[in-house]
Design a protein around this nucleic acid. Sequence first.
DNA 1: TAGGCCATCTGGTCCT
DNA 2: AGGACCAGATGGCCTA
Length: 272
Amino acid sequence: MDSDTSRVSSRPSSPEVDDIFLSTLKKSVHGFSGAVSSTQSDSPSDIHCMRGLSAADEESLTLRLAKKDRKLLSEGELQSIRLKINSRERKRMHDLNVAMDGLREVMPYAHGPSVRKLSKIATLLLARNYILMLSNSLEEMKRLVSEIYGTTGHHGGFHPSACGTMTHGGPVPGHPASPHASHPAVHHPLLPPAAVSTASLSAPAIAAVTSVRPHHGLLKAPAAGAGPLGSSFQHWGVGTGMPCPCSMCQVPPQHVSSMSTVTMPRLASDSK
DNA sequence: TAGGCCATCTGGTCCT
DNA sequence: AGGACCAGATGGCCTA
């Protein structure tokens, strides 16, 4: 299908034993020579690499590396390359975290210093469910508009872009920037919460979200009886108008569940 | 103290 | 060849 799939399938399920040995050995040698690690003196790898290695082991490794690479790079060159690669990887992970923070910001979730930051996995699962819920809400809106206006009139179809007012519209339902506005459960009497929220989200998925931290929950200050997401969380229509990811409020829609199989092109490919 | 989450390093694989 | 992506390993931090 896509390159990622093929990449995954082509990747060996487990490395060869020799590779593991070599990898470990190389790490040890790096630590032994003090060559590799990075700009951060307190980095974990500095500690990882404190394991010693016998001279024989080191010699053996050198021979094996020489066979494998067929390139003789000076230690300084290798170190320089390693530092460069590490730096790139750090930047990549940093960018990923920035994107994750951006995603957290637009998630329908309590924000603030007293609220524990969503974990990465929780963020992703909640985001997925949020998208599913919005998709379902949109479909429901379309259906109701069609029912109300029929197929002959001006509003034969759903085209909010042409009807900018959409009092009908306004901000995106459930968007944190407008928590009070336009969620069907709050502003659209024709859309009971059950019609939207209970029909739109994946219970297994949200169960996964709420079970990510089964012992201490997702929030810093959970209160008794506050539900799986803690005291700061509000269910549908309870003040915020935000969607609730708890298992009580969410049921998977069959027609959108296929979204989970949609493959995304690499961002790198898109941006290039 | 155990378990969850995270940052980082590292080597392998794939793509351009 | 270089860069991006990925997964494994490891240790630190935090919370229950």
